[in-house]
Simulated assay, not measured.
Amino acid sequence: MSAWREALQTMRMKSVAAVWTSMLLLAGLGVLWLQIPDSHVWQLAFSILFGSGLLALFFWFCTWLFGQMLHPGKRERWWVKWLLLAVVICVWWLLQIPIDRLIEHEALYAGYWTSRLPHGLRGLHTYEHLMMLQDWTYFSLRLIVTGLLLPVAVVVGAGGLGAGVRGVVHLWLRWWYWVAALICGWLAFAISGKLIDWTPGHGLASEMLSLLMRLGFAFTLDVLLGCFVLALIAVGLRRVAVAAN
């Protein structure tokens, strides 16, 4: 059985609904957290306490989800899983910094390349085309970094570190994992961007309703694509565990 088909069969509506609800709840709580004023000491203290609780809820959900995916026999303590997961997130953030630096100068790069192209090619490779090419290139770099670290996050978050390194390397060397991760990321990037930029209807009420529907569809699509990639990771890690036994 192909890994993609097995991943689709592994996905359960209950798990997808749990991810959808949890992500929506975390996003809503994050918006509320940003609305807390900090003009007084007690407000600042409440903001710190609320943010800490939100962060703890995020780590708890991640470790619960990854544990449900892998069902490791021997699990690490919760604080060990949280600490290792925080390290993975910090590494991911550090690897995003050089990509962010490139994005900050993409307009400068596009202008330079446009000026250096032969005159006959400037109609084919315009400034807008070069900007779009850079957007896709930098987003693909983000996907590669995420694809490298997401299996590591799943392993350390689940607490099953026994055959974790072998399983992660196994996934890194499988073409079907990278094709699925890149395609899912590109689809989420393209479709979500088009939906957000599309503004049908006229009037405040119709535009607000359209925005809510477009955001809901884009959010649901991103969750489904993300769950498929997570299911694919679980399939790859389980295959290594079965082969090791």
Rank of each mutant, 00 (worst) to 15 (best):
V152P: 03
A153L: 07
A181D: 09
A181G: 02
G147W: 11
R166A: 05
T146F: 15
T146V: 10
C184A: 14
W175L: 13
G147Y: 07
L161C: 02
W136M: 15
G159V: 09
V154C: 02
W175I: 09
L150N: 03
T137D: 13
V154H: 00
P151H: 00
W176R: 14
V169L: 13
W172L: 03
G160K: 00
A180W: 09
G162D: 13
V155K: 00
F139L: 14
V169G: 07
G157K: 00
A163I: 08
L143V: 14
A158L: 07
Y138H: 13
V179P: 10
T146K: 11
L148F: 14
D135T: 12
G157R: 00
L143E: 13
W172E: 02
W172H: 02
V155N: 01
S140G: 13
I144S: 15
A181T: 01
I144M: 15
A153P: 11
L182F: 10
S140H: 09
A180F: 07
Y177C: 06
W178Y: 07
Y177F: 11
L149N: 14
V168S: 00
W178F: 06
A180G: 02
I144K: 12
L173G: 05
W176P: 11
A163E: 12
A180Y: 05
R166T: 05
D135A: 12
L182K: 00
W178M: 03
R166E: 11
V179T: 09
R174F: 01
L141I: 10
P151E: 06
R174N: 02
V156T: 01
G164C: 01
W175Q: 13
L182G: 03
G157S: 08
V179W: 14
V169D: 06
T137C: 15
V155F: 01
Y138I: 13
W172I: 00
P151G: 01
P151Y: 00
L141V: 08
T137G: 15
R142F: 11
W178G: 04
S140F: 12
A163Y: 06
H170K: 03
G164E: 01
L148K: 06
G162E: 14
V179K: 08
T146L: 13
C184F: 12
F139M: 12
V156C: 02
G157I: 01
V145K: 09
I183W: 12
C184P: 08
G162P: 07
W136D: 15
L173N: 08
G160C: 03
R166H: 09
R142A: 11
P151M: 01
V156Q: 02
Y177W: 08
G157W: 05
W176Y: 14
G167E: 07
L143Y: 08
G167D: 11
L161W: 02
L141G: 15
L141F: 15
W176A: 12
W178T: 07
F139K: 10
T137I: 15
A153M: 09
P151D: 04
L150F: 06
R142P: 10
A163K: 09
V165L: 04
L148V: 13
W175A: 05
S140K: 08
A153H: 07
C184Q: 04
G167T: 07
T137Q: 14
A163V: 14
V168R: 00
D135M: 13
L150G: 05
S140P: 09
L148C: 15
T146D: 11
V165R: 03
G162N: 11
L141T: 10
R142Q: 10
G160R: 01
G159T: 05
H170M: 08
L148W: 14
I183Q: 12
R142L: 13
G162A: 11
V169S: 04
